[in-house]
Structures are given as C-alpha cells and as structure tokens.
Amino acid sequence: MNKTVIFLLDGEVIEGSPGKTILEAAEDAGKYIPRLCAYKGLAPHGSCRVCTVLVNGRPQASCIQPIADGIVVESESAEVRELRRGVIEMLFVEGNHFCMCCEKSGNCELQALAYRFGITAPRYPYLFPKREVDATHPYILLDRNRCIQCGRCVRASRDVDGKNVFQFGGRGAGKRIAVNAAGGLGKTDAAVIDQAIEVCPVGAILRKRVGFRVPVGKRKFDHQPIGSDIEGKAGPTAV
C-alpha cells in the first residue's frame, strides 16, 4: 500500500497517498485550493463548490474527488478562478453580510476569500433575505443572516460532539440551519466549548461577549491571505 498516486496539478507533477482527495493531496504538496465547507477532521460535504477544479477538463469538487493516477487537474487557471469567484459572490449576495459591523471580520473565511480573489463588490444583485436570529442561548449567538449553509456545524455536532444540535431545514433558497429544540438554541444541549461552535467559517455562530477580545488588526487574516499557511509563505500571493 506504499504506492503513491501520481497526477498533474496545474502542470506540476504531484505525488499523493492513495485514498486522498485532490484537495488534501494538493495541500500536502503545499498547494492551496480555496474551500469553505471542507474542514480538517470533518467528513467532506461538497456543498460550497469553492474548491471546484477541472479534472481532465471536467468540473469537480476537489474536496470529494479522490486522486487517481494520471489525472490532469487544473486549479489556478483563469477559467477556474472565474468559476470560484462567481460562487463566492453568490454566497455574499445570498445572505446579509455587512462586514464593517460583523464581529467575525478579520477571522472570517468568506471575507478572507473575497480579499484573496480581489472581490470589491459582487456582480450579482443582493437578495436581502429575511432570516431569523436565535439569541436564546446564554453564550452562543446564531445569526442566520451570515450563514453560508456549509454544514460544518451539522457535521461537527453530530460526528465530533455527538449531540445533533444542528441540521438543515427547508430546501432550495429557503434552506436554513435548524436546531434540535422548538424553543431555539438555548433549549438544546449546545455548549460554548462544542466543536460545532468552533468550526463556523463565518459570523453565523458566535460566542457571545468575546467578539472583540482580539482587536481588529490582529486577527487571523488581517496580515496574510487565507491559504498562506498551506502555501507556506506569508505576504500577499499573486492574484
């Protein structure tokens, strides 16, 4: 089983261990493929589509697609970048994101991706949905206005915390995060230390009263773009 899988990523030969996804194998090789729903330690979800690559010319989500010998993967081409950019912009217009007054700003993966892609304003019209805020829990805030339906909280609560606090409700544009109690999050057994609370990539699940403990300017993505840790180099990458 020591045999490695060899494939091409943007023209470079990459060796990966069998069973890995394209996204993981790329990461092992120091190549960052943007992602939002994927999270280390959680089962892949394949929902955000930000990790889209072309495999032998066909679009695939790299977080769920296993590597295979001889595949030709295109990740940083103009075409792929444009597709990803479109998907990121959709996530912005789908919710209600006002970064300037969001506690997550600077630590937010969606915002950081927008910076990485040089998005200043989305090309799509804002949809301004009406979404519910759930403040019933003493220590946790659930603000669906910023939820991007990535399902990280669902998977973490079920598979790591063993609690099933979160699950999706509704469908289509009406899809939303539901919680395991009629009376809201405060009536569930969600705890502030749960992994489900930790993994939210955006400001949809927030711990109350600690929002500005780390000041703006010292936050995760304030000085280096998202993905820099994987690429192993600080400072802005060529975009």
């Binding site: 394949g46 589509r49 998907v87 959709m90 996530l91 789908e94 949809l127 339906q149 544009a173 899809k175």
Partner: peptide, 13 residues
C-alpha cells in the same frame, strides 16, 4: 428555484 434541494451554492443561489 422551487425544486432545487439547496445543498450546493450555485444551484441554490
């Protein structure tokens, strides 16, 4: 729009 399951971004939005 009515029938999209809403799982993935491009179809949902």
């Amino acid at each position: 729009v009515e029938e999209s399951c809403g799982y993935c971004t491009p179809c949902r939005v």
